[in-house]
Design a protein around this nucleic acid. Structure first.
Lengths: 128, 128
DNA sequence: TCATTGATCAACTGATTGGTTGATTAAGAG
DNA sequence: CTCTTAATCAACCAATCAGTTGATCAATGA
């Protein structure tokens, strides 16, 4: 049932990585081209060690990769990893939206209600 | 600075809310219909207080809403909030992908004049 | 060789989080 | 009224995290 082809921990790290404005700004910067730690550190008032940690978080989350070019370690954004995240979210968003449309048809047009509906049947599953 | 029309803190909370397997399972469950705290707690081996906190996290992140039905407080998934997240990710994913395609063409032409690219010798990476 | 630059490692601190137990509110049902 | 159910509040604890300073590594250039 779980089509988590990319493991729960991987999603943990990916979403956690994006749950920080500094790292999101880095993603935004990297979308325009590879950059080094120092270049990524410039806009922020934090030490380079902190920036290095942020990049390690992004790397461990699979969102960026790194290569070596002399002393420099350019950081590269992995667009495919971003796509995997949107795929996970859309999976459930589309289910919810289609369910909402079904309900809207059942209630008939013109009935403006607040969005609450009950599940037709309670499925009590036990998995621990 | 931030061109986030949604506010940085809102994105912080939304991504952070999804960076937890319990809360993601709740989102998956809620995509199939509204549910109460107790219903959401069933699959997990944690107390209902902990589940209540998880739901508060989702609610504070704007991913779910709640209403009142007698004693029950059904939780409702907000599909529009999920869409805002995918929109944020796609914004940068598409930039990165278009840049990747541009670079791919320039490699065929020979000379790169891209101002932001630091690694002219970059070549295609393997797709996963 | 030595100095410089880019980047990381190690240890520490303060703040935050996830979970618990126990008490409490709110709304019915008897 | 009391009793039960649903859910939250409050206090607390262990674990984790963001950021710092200081030392170290790796590659290059003098």
């Amino acid at each position: 049932m779980e089509q988590d082809a990319l493991g729960s921990e991987s999603l943990d790290r990916a979403f956690m990585a994006l749950a920080d404005p500094v790292r999101r700004a880095m993603v935004a910067r990297l979308s325009r081209g590879d950059a080094t730690v120092n270049e990524l550190a410039e806009p922020f008032a934090i030490t380079k060690q902190a920036v290095s940690k942020h990049i390690q978080v992004l790397e461990h989350a699979g969102l960026v990769t790194r290569s070596r070019d002399a002393q420099r370690r350019p950081v590269h954004l992995d667009a495919a990893a971003l796509e995997r995240l949107t795929a996970w979210i859309d999976q459930y968003r589309l289910i919810a939206e289609s369910r909402f449309r079904q309900l809207d048809q059942l209630l008939g047009a013109g009935v403006s209600h607040h969005e609450q509906e009950n599940t037709p049947a309670k499925k009590k599953e036990e998995l621990k």
